[in-house]
């Protein structure tokens, strides 16, 4: 009876697991094998169009990885990806916390308006937003025009720079950040903050020692999800960023499409995946910790 019940439960979850396994897991596995020098089998189609491929008759080879990681362009793009990600995540966190905290503490109309306004970018397609941002900051754009009108014709512009990529990534990610942080703060009773003030903590200390730890999971979620999103982004860096160095998304696409090097492009994808896993570690840790705490409290 118990066996049948468990079998029934397994059958209920089987369809989504099968879909993920067949349509996501399997392609990932054969791509990983492809990067290790196995060109036949399921990889024979892609290897038929690829240039500069490395094959192995043994178990595996890491030559493609060595070649790709030795390329200056890739190195620059890897550094650029990490830099853009770190800066974007940091700014998104600061802005999201500032807006959410202001709204939470003051509970004023301005706070509510700011929170609502911060969510607006979520409803604007990334392509449109990217072009708008580009027009605003690029050479013929609003900033340059105003600067010229004010007698500063050589005012620097940010068009097609990594800084502009950061600005656009912030635009894209702040709504999610504000929503998550606001939602987390909404679950904290104001008395928790007041109690800290009451025993002698300043506003900054009470925020750092009480609110941040109590709102840790949403903060980690914003950090990780924004980080992974920026690392793997394509549209923003492709439209507003420089040609090189660029982020790994456009870099891999260009390697695949323009240089016809699918094996190298997939190595870049694996590198991107590795970085994303590193970024995801704090999320896994925080979720595990939260589950453990709630289990302990339930006992």
């Amino acid at each position: 009876m118990r066996f049948l019940r468990r079998l029934g439960q397994l059958l209920m979850v089987a369809p989504p697991i099968l879909v993920i396994g067949v349509f996501v897991g399997f392609p990932i596995a054969i791509s990983a094998i492809y990067t290790l020098g196995h060109l036949g089998g399921p990889n024979s189609a892609v290897s038929a169009i690829g240039l500069h491929q490395v094959s192995t008759k043994g178990l595996f080879t890491l030559k493609v990885y060595k070649d790709v990681f030795a390329e200056r362009n890739f190195q620059a793009s890897l550094v650029a990806s990490v830099w853009v990600t770190v800066v974007s995540v940091a700014v998104v966190l600061v802005l999201s916390w500032a807006i959410a905290l202001y709204a939470w503490r003051t509970r004023s109309r301005l706070g509510r308006a700011l929170t609502a306004l911060a969510v607006v970018p979520m409803f604007i397609p990334v392509v449109i937003a990217s072009y708008s941002i580009l027009q605003f900051f690029s050479y013929g754009g609003f900033v340059k025009t105003v600067a010229s009108a004010l007698g500063m014709p050589h005012f620097p512009t940010l068009g097609y720079s990594l800084q502009l990529v950061v600005i656009a990534e912030i635009w894209v990610s702040v709504p999610f950040g504000v929503l998550m942080i606001s939602s987390g703060l909404g679950g904290i009773p104001p008395s928790a903050f007041e109690a800290a003030r009451d025993v002698g903590a300043s506003v900054v200390r009470a925020t750092w020692k009480i609110l941040v730890p109590m709102n840790l999971l949403p903060t980690v979620i914003v950090t990780c999800f924004t980080g992974i999103s920026v690392l793997g982004s394509f549209t923003v860096p492709y439209l507003v960023g420089p040609t090189t160095p660029t982020l790994l998304g456009p870099e891999a696409t260009e390697t695949f499409q323009s240089f016809a090097e699918p094996q190298q492009a997939e190595v870049m994808a694996v590198a991107l995946f590795g970085l994303s896993i590193i970024v995801a570690v704090p999320y896994i840790w925080a979720t595990y910790r939260a589950n453990r705490t709630s289990r302990a409290q339930a006992l």
Partner: peptide, 19 residues
Amino acid sequence: PPERRPTAMVFQNYALWPH
């Protein structure tokens, strides 16, 4: 401000810090 007053408060919901 509260942090500079020689007072201490026990809140209705206790306001303990769960972490």
